[in-house]
Amino acid sequence: MQLDVLIEDERWDTAGLEAIAEAAAVAVAGVLALDAEDWEVSLMGCDDTRIAALNTEFRSKPTPTNVLSWPSEERAADTPGGTPDLPEADLPGMPVELGDIAIAWDTCAREAQEAGKPFEAHVTHLVVHGILHLLGYDHINDADAALMEGLEVRILAKLGLPDPYSS
Rank of each mutant, 00 (worst) to 15 (best):
G81F: 07
L134G: 03
R75T: 00
E40R: 15
K158H: 14
A36Y: 08
G130V: 10
F119G: 04
L156A: 05
N66P: 10
R11P: 02
L156E: 13
D13I: 09
E97P: 11
V31N: 01
M148I: 08
L32S: 07
G99C: 04
M94S: 12
F58E: 07
E149Q: 06
E97M: 08
G130E: 02
T83N: 15
E22H: 09
G82M: 10
T83S: 08
E37R: 10
M94Q: 12
I155G: 01
A52S: 12
I131M: 07
S69C: 04
A33I: 00
E97L: 09
D90I: 11
S72I: 14
A27I: 08
T14W: 00
W70Y: 11
D144G: 05
L126C: 09
L126D: 10
E10W: 14
L86S: 13
T63V: 15
G45R: 04
H129G: 03
M148F: 06
G160I: 07
A121L: 12
A143S: 07
G130S: 01
S60F: 14
L156G: 10
A76Q: 07
G82C: 06
L156K: 07
D106H: 01
D100W: 15
R154S: 12
D38H: 14
R154G: 11
A77W: 01
T56N: 04
A145G: 10
P84M: 08
